[in-house]
Design a protein around this nucleic acid. Structure first.
Lengths: 217, 217
DNA sequence: CCTCCTACTTAGACTAGTATCAGTAGTGTG
DNA sequence: CACACTACTGATACTAGTCTAAGTAGGAGG
């Protein structure tokens, strides 16, 4: 007694030293860090834990990022980038027609729910991550708005506001991102069961509703 | 050197000892804890910080709650209770007519945004706070659904599903709660400015949209 | 006034984490 | 091959936090 207490550091001397390129090492570290961030939030990003998981010492992480803060900042950039990449790949899958909105919504929902990006978006948002990632949903907004303009011209209705499309897309995102974070509570608050099926139905209802408002048939 | 290092405990010997009733003490502690939780999230709930802020020692907090975990559990009950109370008081302000929905939405939005309860709801949700607080929005759902039933009977339309009202209320809550947490990011993602005015317009748009879907005129 | 109860304090043990530093060992290059 | 460069280790310092133990003081009831 009194020497195992020397703590985590002592156990498991690291295996044989592996030398990565600085770039490779940074990416490995960031990937693991992002996983923790997405799954369990920013406070789960612990340099010791990350290091051990990779099989390096925590000092190595400090070597590459200077400090935990440095890691978090790099992580923020990295996370923002991968969120953007994911989002763009979903939008790329899209035929450009509002009729494909359900597919898009499902794709977005998958990003947020299954891949843990909801928490990540929350974190980025709270850190005031303003500059990057803005306007990412503009293509979606544009397509919807364009369709509305055509439809209105065709039916001789008043020219719709672009802001409607913006609000709708924002709502879609907000709801889809919030769903994995707080969905269960709010489903229960209206006495709905909290299961996969209800979630899916909710998502469909949301898209159908937004579409029917934007593009009344 | 080496003795100021004895840490925070040492600075500022506490003023004259104040003796509260156990109940009073617990309530004071919980109130401060809830403030930190609502403003800065669960990890901002630090017994030392709370104690110092009240002017007692951290050991006093342990005396009342046993452990930080104990405090968090009490806090969860307390937070859930006050969230419920707030919500109920907003619902009480309501004339029961769907036309008053904007007022209600504003009230709910105020709870979430201005009083920091969005984070609190998020925390409760993540802790899997299932049992309590469920069904809290049932009165709202009921009123909306009732109105829809009447309207449908009057116009000879098909009987509307109750689930629609539930989903709508859930969406309203989800969006209003998520707005203070991640609203700015998503507003920017559709290239909208992130200011008070836009937020307010967004909220109005949301309610108007949901109402127009539920109660087409 | 005495006495008991308990809310509270002070001191400090213990833990988990970040950060630093001197040295070690892969690796690419002349 | 030798050299320099740097990714990485191991030990250790330091900090911020939780929790405990022992004692202190305010207040209520006899």
């Amino acid at each position: 007694m009194g020497d195992t207490a020397t703590s985590a550091r002592t156990r498991n001397p690291l295996p044989h030293r592996v030398r990565r390129s600085a770039d490779q090492a940074r990416r490995t570290i960031l990937a693991v860090a992002e996983k923790h961030l997405a799954n369990d939030g920013p406070d789960a990003v612990r340099v010791q834990v990350i290091a051990r998981e990779i099989g390096i010492s925590d000092a190595a992480v400090h070597h590459h990022f200077g400090s935990r803060q440095g890691l978090l900042e790099a992580l923020m950039r990295h996370a923002a980038r991968s969120l953007r990449t994911e989002t763009e790949s979903v939008l790329a899958d899209w035929n450009g027609k509002p009729s494909g909105l359900h597919r898009i919504a499902d794709g977005i929902a998958t990003i947020y729910a299954d891949r843990g990006y909801a928490r990540l978006a929350l974190w980025l948002s709270q850190e005031g991550w303003e500059s990057r990632g803005s306007g990412i949903f503009q293509p979606l907004v544009d397509a919807v708005h364009r369709t509305r303009l055509e439809q209105a011209r065709h039916n001789g209705r008043v020219r719709p506001k672009r802001e409607d499309a913006q609000f709708a897309v924002a709502t879609l995102n907000l709801a889809l991102a919030a769903d994995p974070l707080m969905g269960s509570g709010f489903l229960r608050s209206v006495e709905l069961p909290d299961d996969r099926d209800t979630r899916a139905r909710f998502r469909r209802w949301l898209v159908r509703t937004l579409v029917s408002v934007l593009l009344p048939s």
